[in-house]
Design a protein around this nucleic acid. Structure first.
Lengths: 110, 110
DNA sequence: GCGAGATATTTGAATTTGCGAATATCTCGC
DNA sequence: GCGAGATATTCGCAAATTCAAATATCTCGC
């Protein structure tokens, strides 16, 4: 395989975060480490799906795990990732407010 | 269409950034606004490809444009997005250094 | 209005990805 | 070792994504 550029690696990281179910899981883990069963309960996603996505997140180093008896505890591997999510939401919020400004301006013009 | 959740929107934003060519373009624009032809030159990507990806980036509000005669000037729409990219690269760097620590530890153990 | 430079769009094939359903694996207490 | 709870994996398929190549559109100067 050809040597992957930093852009390839960053693209993979983005793609890994580019799924609503996975983002929902990551968001759940913001509040601290959780067992898989708790993630299933909080998100309302099917168990197999949660496990699948956790597997992807772990493969890309976004979450880390430890086993505790029957349970497996997941946590966000790097707190900078929560900051990334926060910033993205801020961007989305700003995009939305810009859109509503445009909308209101159009309203005024009739 | 069903109301899209914040997770859906964030996932779209992530997916939009989840392409090496687009990240390369965004990285080029870090240095300030550029004409399309300059982006083509800096990145070494084909013109049609750059234009295609710029279209995607613009559709999702990641870049903004203005026309100047024959040229079209692109810029990053929200500086928080450059911060997002920086943070992601930091995460990747930390992942790499963790991997090399593991590697070295394994070396020592033989 | 035409030619040339600059940018954008369309098309079709190849690859990747997400999902549901079924099933497998692990761990504990007995 | 078995059953049950908890978690992980596999499979087949539909849908989305990417790329290269061809072509279309826009803008200017003449």
């Amino acid at each position: 395989m050809s040597p992957r550029s930093i852009f390839d690696m960053q693209a993979e990281l983005c793609k890994t975060m580019g799924n609503a179910a996975r983002l929902q899981i990551v968001h759940t883990l913001r509040g601290g480490p959780h067992r898989v069963s708790d993630i299933v309960e909080v998100t309302g996603l099917a168990q197999a799906k949660v496990s699948q996505h956790l597997g992807v997140l772990r493969a890309y180093g976004i979450v880390a795990t430890k086993r505790e008896g029957k349970d497996v505890i997941y946590r966000i591997a790097n707190s900078k990732l929560t900051r990334v999510c926060d910033l993205m939401r801020e961007v989305l919020a700003e995009q939305a407010s810009e859109r509503s400004e445009v909308f209101e301006a159009l309203q005024r013009k009739g």
